[in-house]
Design a protein around this nucleic acid. Structure first.
Ligand SMILES: [Mn+2]
Ligand SMILES: [Mn+2]
Ligand SMILES: [Zn+2]
Ligand SMILES: [Zn+2]
Lengths: 147, 147
DNA sequence: AATGAGAATGATAATCATTATCATAATAAT
DNA sequence: ATTATTATGATAATGATTATCATTCTCATT
């Protein structure tokens, strides 16, 4: 079952409707990689149909998220960003505080410890966010005056 | 050196001034525990001096943060929250997605692995955020119908 | 203690991302 | 095809944070 089909199944289960705008927004979103802002998704969707409204993008992103096809990536400054999960297993982020570069990684040992913490406090796991913040090698060089 | 003195030293180093509002806001902030929103800090500060303006609270929080006396706690919904670091070593958070309850913890093994990741990618560490999200025991009980 | 340049304050307006509203249009079950 | 229901998009509203700016406060210097 592909992403579109999964989205349709989700909507059916919720007695909601699959529509042209929703299909277009999902396609636009899936067509890109990385962390997208609602505005970026709107721009991409408008390439397919210029009539798409941004309210619909906000609404549809939430649907896609609830359908389990996307997750919110830790928001940088102003706007929230989202990343889709197609062919993209769980990972966390290492971000450069200077240039914003993002490296995705997965550390099994950390994931294991996190599970232990849920167990220790009898919490039912629902997810986690983790972002490591640092200065990337390039920005370190710039700081040193190597232009 | 206590918190107020550290704040004064920070301001002096930056050629900025210690003022009555700044002192009051810092005191109000320090007088509480937990994760405070700017508005909550304003309310606390107004108990000391009702004339304090909320713009000054926003400005002063940022100063306090840059002085290394506070950090932003992962924002829940709308408003950012801050927690002071006095007598409060580094920790991460386990939050209930239902009732918002927060448990603070520190896992040395995770901290160690995070350092390794910085090293692996040659990033100069600047910090990290981590929040585990789950359902607390009480909210699990409620979900089961035990009211 | 008085001065004065620079910095800070607080009231208010401005931003900007996200939500709410609502009249109109699209969807899907019958 | 009918129709009850839901979705859309334009627009206004919201709410947290920032910017503006005339007035007031600080503090190094006299
Ligand atoms: Mn990612
Ligand atoms: Mn905390
Ligand atoms: Zn960088
Ligand atoms: Zn709970």
């Amino acid at each position: 079952m592909n992403e579109i089909e999964r989205f349709e199944a989700y909507l059916r289960a919720k007695h909601q409707k699959m529509t042209q705008p929703r299909r277009i927004i999902l396609e636009a979103f899936l067509s890109t990689e990385g962390h997208l802002t609602a505005e970026a998704i709107l721009l991409e969707a408008k390439k397919i149909d210029p009539g798409i409204g941004q309210a619909t993008v906000f609404r549809t992103i939430r649907l896609i998220e609830n359908a389990g096809l996307a997750r919110e990536a830790l928001q940088a400054d102003g706007a929230r960003t989202f990343e889709h999960l197609a062919d993209h297993p769980h990972h966390d982020h290492l971000r450069c505080v200077e240039c914003g570069k993002v490296i995705e990684f997965l550390n099994p040992s950390i994931e294991r410890e996190q599970k232990k913490i849920f167990t220790q406090y009898s919490f039912e796991p629902r997810g986690h966010t983790m972002e490591l913040l640092g200065l990337c090698p390039e920005c370190q060089a710039k700081k040193r005056g190597e232009y």
